[in-house]
Design a protein around this nucleic acid. Structure first.
Length: 560
RNA sequence: CGGAAUGUAGCGCAGCUUGGUAGCGCACUUCGUUAGGGACGAAGGGGUCGCAGGUUCAAAUCCUGUCAUUCCGACCA
């Protein structure tokens, strides 16, 4: 690309309304531009990077024997009603009507259509295994788009689907895809962790996430100091220990105006982890009161799973009035409401909890003092908790979910009646897996991991162009001639460079190439007449080479 | 969906309290000087002040409504 006569611009100042290093830099460097909330234009430089990322993804998918196709984005709503997911996605689905009044949605993910496609092919067990993928635009009406390309409402996703006749086959297909995902992450040079995760709205048997590590990541990852345990906090089990001290006598004490657990803890000089707090929730319009250790927080996925519910909210005053609970002083003893107790609470002794009486708490409460309806692990782990695998200590990290793999089992084949005849001539359901990667998220995550005060620092294979040839002065004929000659040689030999042939001062050209993150710069300057140019990496010192050696030297640098 | 804020030139902002010729920096155009790390001088071009309604002789400014964007929550692959 020759910059003169190209669509190329950079911004000197930070961009308002961009809230992360990656989105700010990508906007300043002219890769992307926000169009509306959570919707971006992908500009030419951004497209270059997307193509490189997608090429790696396609290569690894093709290697597993996965075949590429393309599904529509515009899909009749019925398809999702049939699978039972229309309700599950709810408002996060973009919905519209055609001129005849027919209901359509814009696809948020495509299990249904792939199952329908599979139906056209699968009749017998001999028709499997096979796998399909696409790179397509997905639409999800996120309540709160954020962090540039990281949480958006319209985005490209590579999604693949595997079809097998039994669980064993699915496991094998999963392993192949999983391995391809590892290769993709490695080739993208992402710093990532693979963690166990909740299956969420996808359903199924197993979900693992490929998480790019960065402090702005929206997911909390639970890692062990000692072993390689790695899990998304939403499914990390809490390992609790039985308190063995002797039970004391239950006693009601005055705690005037102490509503929060912090206030109670401070007033009574009892640490928060020796208190039990109440969370007054609304589950299916029933007041559901959860009791957890004072310093814990409720884990939404865990409690929904325990109760078999889809949604949980805080209870309103009206709902609270259906019981004798006193907000701020709610305790499990003598409480007439649906009670869910965290398993850890049952191992506590002589704890403090609300007395269901304004201004009073109990001390020395014990599990034998109250009844409950449900018990389970319903809280988040904390840093310093015990690793469920090795007993070591756990710590947190934050990640961006770049990829996700699911063993779906027969959930969708059952919903959509995807069956085959086995060797005994009986109908069986197909076993499916689904696998997603967000290429633009990967791009944003890469920038988050590779950015400094001068701009982006792309990995060599991902950069929009691996090298920029900078002509110091466009009024120096020899420089212009040599710069163009080197450019032509590179193009002819298969490396596509940028040629900065603009009439700008050198400083501007250097700054721009650093901002957009070109890994190497060939500077054609004052020694051009001697046939000597400089090669400078994005970070590091320049070397001088003869112009005729520039290509080979650079190829070496790119390959090492 | 709750709480808060902001919409003024391509980008970043001031002006609004106290109504009276629409401004600054960057970017852009022309000329000159400059030329290996975001130059300097001079002269210029560019804006339905988010939109609609109201008050007023007069509205970027005051009032009402509305839309959009952002932040904190809730929510979320």
């Amino acid at each position: 690309m020759k910059l003169k006569n190209s669509y190329f611009f950079t911004l000197r100042e930070d961009v308002k309304d961009e809230d992360s290093a990656s989105s700010n830099m990508l906007c300043r460097a002219g890769f992307i531009k926000k169009s509306s909330a959570g919707v971006y234009m992908m500009l030419p430089l951004g497209m270059k990077v997307m193509h490189k990322i997608n090429a790696i993804i396609r290569d690894e998918m093709d290697k597993t024997g996965c075949q590429e196709l393309l599904m529509p984005a515009l899909i009749p709503e019925d398809v999702y009603i049939a699978s039972g997911r229309r309700e599950g996605f709810g408002h996060s689905m973009f919905a519209l009507k055609d001129r005849k009044g027919q209901d359509y949605v814009l696809g948020p993910t495509h299990e249904e259509l792939f199952a329908i496609a599979a139906k056209m092919k699968i009749q017998s067990y001999k028709d499997m295994p096979f796998s399909l993928y696409q790179i397509e635009t997905k639409f999800r009406d996120e309540p709160r788009p954020r962090y540039g390309l990281i949480r958006v409402r319209e985005f490209q996703m590579k999604d693949s689907y595997t079809f097998d006749k039994d669980e064993e086959g699915m496991d094998e297909a999963y392993a192949k895809q999983f391995n391809a995902y590892k290769n993709i992450m490695d080739r993208l040079h992402l710093n990532y962790k693979i963690v166990r995760a909740d299956t969420g709205v996808m359903g199924g048997l197993l979900s693992e996430e490929f998480q790019a590590l960065t402090p702005i990541g929206e997911d909390t990852l639970v890692l062990c100091d000692n072993c390689d345990y790695a899990s998304n906090i939403e499914v990390s089990p809490v390992v609790s220990t039985q308190n063995t001290e002797e039970e004391k006598t239950l006693e009601m004490v005055e705690t005037p105006h102490c509503k929060s657990i912090e206030e109670v803890s401070e007033y009574l000089h009892i640490p928060q982890n020796r208190c039990v707090k109440a969370l007054l929730m609304n589950v299916k319009d029933t007041l559901t009161i959860c009791f957890v250790r004072g310093d814990r927080e409720l884990n939404e996925s865990k409690i929904l799973k325990l109760l078999g519910a889809n949604e949980i909210n805080f209870a309103d005053d009206e709902l609270i009035a259906t019981s004798n609970a006193v907000p701020g002083f709610t305790g499990p003893i003598g409480l007439n409401a649906k009670i869910v107790v965290d398993q850890e609470v049952l191992k506590m002794k002589n704890f403090c909890c609300g007395a269901n009486k304004e201004g009073y708490h109990y001390i020395n409460a014990n599990p034998k003092d109250f009844k409950y309806d449900y018990c389970g692990d319903i809280v988040n782990v904390l840093e310093g908790d015990i690793c469920p695998v090795c007993g070591g200590k756990i710590h947190f990290a934050h990640g961006i979910e770049v990829g996700n793999t699911f063993k779906l089992g027969t959930k969708y084949s059952k919903a959509l009646n995807l069956q085959y005849l086995d060797a005994n001539n009986t109908l069986q359901y197909v076993w499916m897996g689904s696998y997603g990667i967000g290429p633009a998220r990967a791009m944003a995550a890469l920038v988050e991991q590779n950015v400094d005060e001068n701009g982006i620092n792309w990995p060599k294979d991902i950069a929009p162009y691996p090298v920029a040839i900078v002509i110091i002065s466009d009024r120096d004929e020899e420089q212009v001639k040599l710069g163009n000659a080197i450019y032509d040689e590179f193009v002819q030999k298969g490396i596509e460079p940028i040629l900065d042939d603009r009439s700008e001062r050198p400083g501007i050209k250097f700054k721009d190439m650093e901002l957009i993150g070109i890994p190497y710069r060939i500077t054609v300057g004052r020694k051009a007449k001697e046939g000597i140019v400089e090669i400078k990496p994005r970070i590091g010192d320049a070397i001088e080479v003869k112009a005729e050696d520039a290509f080979n030297t650079l190829r070496e640098l790119l390959n090492n």
